[in-house]
Write a protein that binds this DNA or RNA. Structure first.
Lengths: 354, 354
DNA sequence: CGCCATGATGAAATCGGTTACTGTGTACGA
DNA sequence: TCGTACACAGTAACCGATTTCATCATGGCG
């Protein structure tokens, strides 16, 4: 648009060297008051803004951090993002947002996108990377990906939020997913439910696997059988939730409670239940996991496990900052405990017609 | 972490000059096959990735575009973002996300943040900027801001989504907000409502003002009076929606329908209505504006004006790309028509007890 | 009065790429 | 046989900052 003014232009017009201009810019060495003013006024006059590319090139610090997440449209992620922002803004970082758009992609395509974004972020010389989303060993892409990410981790600080990759040691900030799955199931069992289903998520993602593990553990401890036909993995969206709940309701025997892998699926499940004439929670209790604000906005309000998204984001930002600034005392693994939020979508089961 | 390898390292080991390495990197001139292979294998061996800062410094193109929005936590914005992504990814852009976090801030603070982000984006040499959110003349900060943004617009392509600033000519992609407000109101009038309220938004934001204008126009055309005490501006969140609806329901006379400035407020309004024992839509009809997926997930599903977020994002991305690549044929103003989505939260009003 | 710390500044190297310019060697048409 | 064109490759300038090193006053101190 316009050729931009540089330190050289300023220097020339002020009859000083670029070094001096740089000094007033960064306050890095004493400059005579009169000279400083002269330069400062030129800076104002031209609205001069130093080129961050040039600066970063020599300083080897960009103040940029990259964020890779699977689907910005899922309200969990904006929430975490907000937490990241809050913390990272203080340190003066700005964000690269990389949405791998997984909601519509198959897993292979998603890995490709992640790799692609990872490379872009490296080229752009970000100071650090945050990856949000669960991974686990079950998919064959995963090993390859792990190696790749490990390689990157050697070059630039990286922290995982709620996820991991097999065989590699990354810095991680996670929610105790298993405890989450367990506690929410125990809540239902405590209410008197015995026939409980688990729907949602992806079988190759660590968050799903761990939540399900917690579910199984709670059931086992209570001496309740787990019906495998009541376990269904089919995604994380409202629509998927509707579908899975729909399938569940068409079965011969129907559970009295359903734990959903996340809030969106929970909301979808409520919709499906209501649509087929059931009342929630009278006829069927439904729970979510995530604790996004939205879960408190539906009717009935969703009982859920709060994953404390904001804190998750904040914690990750501060770990990453520790890594970047090499302040020694960074924990490799930070575990946050989820919190059961009891609202309106759960209650004691209806009396069995005897 | 590790000192990175450069073109010089590659060049030395391959016994060629950096120019040749650059040529194989960018395929910008013929290189002998054997040489190319030798270089390529070294690139693979070291996982060499050219430094984008250095490249951008001389090429004057960064492939980065900045996005400024008020609150990533409001589902409208992720939706628009997804649209932007879809389109911009094709062109190879990556995003800087700047959340001014307005949900908690007063307007002055928000302007400060915007200015700050704008400056950061300029320094980082983004190829273009997209600002999402409505503005209008009513606030005194606004004039100043307009000048500032106009100044920036001279230096780097900028497009507004759903917003404007007084006295300046920017490229804009907008929804016809007034039509939106009008159509949704006409829908209610068509159902037989005469006592209609309008709640939500901010009186200094153009989107609110225009939606309200549409509301007034529809009322006027139908010969219906607008009760000023039924007009309440108090924000865009679910919580605010609850509060405003609560106030409305405490009045001596209560409307039979409420048009809300956005979906979140609409959802809050439904919650408040239900909480105070009313049924929606039997006792009161409620409408939103935005058309976020969430609006279809609540019970009852919210009747709303779809602002076609994805298309909005895509259109903005393509306008911005046109601006950046100077492909001449860019429209200054792109207007999309909103679409009425009738769902479950509106119906004919109850018979007046005569 | 001489010395040295300090203030104030400039010259030039540097970061890691791209590219304009230049210079070979070879093929091809006249 | 000569001129021209093109394939291939190197040299060095350049992008716009920061920073090291050197220079030169100035002034306090012994």
């Amino acid at each position: 648009m316009m050729k931009s003014v540089t330190v050289y232009d300023i220097a020339k017009e002020a009859n000083v060297s670029v070094a001096t201009v740089s000094r007033v810019l960064n306050n890095t060495a004493p400059v005579k008051a009169s000279t400083r003013e002269r330069i400062q006024s030129l800076i104002n006059k031209y609205q001069f803004q130093p080129n961050a590319l040039a600066r970063s090139l020599i300083k080897k610090v960009t103040g940029m951090i990259g964020i890779i997440l699977p689907d910005i449209t899922n309200p969990f992620f904006p929430e975490v993002l907000a937490g990241l922002e809050q913390e990272a803004r203080k340190q003066g970082y700005t964000f690269f947002l990389c949405d791998t758009g997984s909601s519509n992609l198959d897993i292979k395509e998603q890995y490709k996108r992640e790799t692609q974004y990872l490379n872009i972020l490296m080229e752009k010389q970000v100071d650090g990377i945050i990856m949000i989303g669960g991974r686990i060993d079950l998919h064959k892409c995963s090993k390859e990906m792990a190696k790749e990410v490990a390689e990157i981790n050697k070059r630039v600080p990286l922290v995982f939020i709620n996820g991991n990759l097999p065989g590699a040691k990354f810095h991680r900030v996670v929610i105790d997913e298993e405890a989450g799955g367990r506690m929410v199931t125990e809540h239902l069992i405590g209410l008197g439910h015995r026939d409980i289903a688990f729907i949602g998520g992806y079988s190759q993602m660590s968050n799903t696997v761990e939540r399900l593990q917690g579910f199984r553990m709670a059931m086992e401890r209570a001496g309740l059988p787990v019906r495998e036909e009541w376990i269904d993995h089919g995604g994380f969206s409202v629509q998927r939730g509707k579908n899975m709940m729909g399938r569940l309701l068409e079965m011969d025997t129907v559970p009295t409670a359903v734990v959903c892998a996340n809030d969106l699926v929970g909301i979808g499940a409520i919709k499906a239940a209501v649509k087929s004439g059931l009342q929630v929670p009278r006829d069927v209790s439904i729970t979510g996991v995530d604790g996004v604000p939205l879960a408190a906005s539906v009717i009935p309000e969703l009982t859920t496990m709060s994953l404390r998204c904001l804190e998750l984001g904040r914690a990750a930002a501060s770990v990453l900052h520790g890594l970047i600034s090499k302040s020694g005392d960074v924990q490799t693994l930070t575990i946050l405990q989820p919190e059961l939020v009891i609202r309106e979508s759960t209650s004691v089961p209806m009396q069995k017609e005897a």
